[in-house]
Design a protein around this nucleic acid. Structure first.
Lengths: 210, 210
DNA sequence: TATTTAAATGAACAAATGTTCTTTTACTTT
DNA sequence: AAAGTAAAAGAACATTTGTTCATTTAAATA
């Protein structure tokens, strides 16, 4: 997407912004053109029609940082990091909600989720399933290594994932009203602390001191 | 809302359905009229304009079951119920996502969240803050009664609330594609089990048997 | 029953919107 | 410099959409 002709990229970026802020249906071709600084008819030199812009945005979601919580590293390599790995994942969610590009993509995704089946498929497969499965593999390995308690890894992955998603939604929603996100932002770390502290297998020697 | 003239209620219900399924902007007055079975002009005998329908729906969200997780009971009366109270709250979320009326309201709320400031205020104050605060009071009392471990009650409330919200969104999304919700539905209970088991203060006598 | 009121119809309008087409401009290639 | 190509502008069109209005129909009231 980065190697597009200047104008096409501008149209694309303006559309992401407007679709995220107002929704696809409420955004007009004239508005997009105005943001780019061209005539509405010029848009059709770069995209077949309005829907083609939408399709291209959805196509490119897979390449965004929206979904790469693990930076493409394999579970085997990283599970030993324990809590700091979870901190890292939690931080990725936080970054997504604060980065000015990915937060628009997240908002766009939530905005159009119920209006676009392809987007629901992306959300389910790439954003949710893929990450939760990877998380559950990591948790499974942690269990085998007796770092954390044994239980259904998939349930555990969902329990770790879902608050992060929710807090992310909170941040993006608060930003939509230019409200302070400070309190909500602390919940990312507090979640990881709370979560890890309740699943980790505690050092018995330490415990017996009490 | 129930004591409206027949036609007004029909318009209202059809609008909720269509707004939830396609979004406010994408729904036309002619579509609403078609679902009701009248001419589009007849709608204006009951509502000033299209936006007035939207406003009335938002006004009435406060009266819906969408937000009453506790059935108006006071924390003092209910905190002693412990886990079964959490089960009950968890079940309310599940019911909302399966009830054919409230699931439309929830979908409507998520659909229009970023397009309507009044809706965001409702979401924040009535749906989120109110329930999380009530939850944190309940948790605080449980802590004082030494039923659960001591920690920040508000963090705990968020940790309990957020997965339920997420699973609710999952159900509604899956239903949008007529997919099976069976797996997602089990997560409501598993969340409560997981959560309670990790915060409750365990009976020491029992524990010492091991 | 006669009269008033409310609600539905059918036609129409004005504005908005996606899209197309022709012309003009600007840049690249030979 | 000339020719060719890509992109922008400007005008226009066909639909869609929210809304209005005069007229008819139905229901309630006196």
């Amino acid at each position: 997407m980065s190697k597009l002709s200047g104008t096409k990229k501008k149209i694309y970026d303006a559309s992401v912004k407007l679709f995220a802020e107002k929704g696809y249906k409420a955004t007009t071709v004239r508005e997009i053109a105005k943001v780019v600084g061209i005539q509405q008819s010029a848009i059709y030199n770069h995209f077949k029609n309005k829907e083609a812009i939408l399709d291209e945005i959805i196509d490119n979601l897979s390449n965004s940082h929206l979904i790469n919580l693990f930076e493409d590293k394999e579970p085997k390599e990283i599970y030993k990091k324990g809590k700091s790995l979870l901190k890292q994942v939690s931080n990725m969610f936080k970054l997504i909600s604060y980065d000015t590009k990915t937060d628009l993509l997240f908002r766009f995704m939530m905005q159009e989720l119920f209006n676009n089946e392809r987007l629901r498929i992306f959300y389910n497969e790439e954003f949710y399933q893929k990450n939760v499965k990877k998380l559950s593999i990591v948790f499974f390995m942690m269990m085998q290594d007796e770092m954390i308690e044994s239980m259904d890894p998939l349930v555990l992955a969902n329990e770790f994932f879902s608050p992060l998603f929710f807090y992310q939604l909170q941040i993006v929603r608060l930003k939509a009203d230019n409200k302070s996100t400070a309190v909500a932002a602390t919940l990312f770390e507090k979640h990881t602390d709370f979560f890890w502290d309740r699943i980790r297998i505690k050092n018995e020697k330490k415990d017996q001191l009490f």
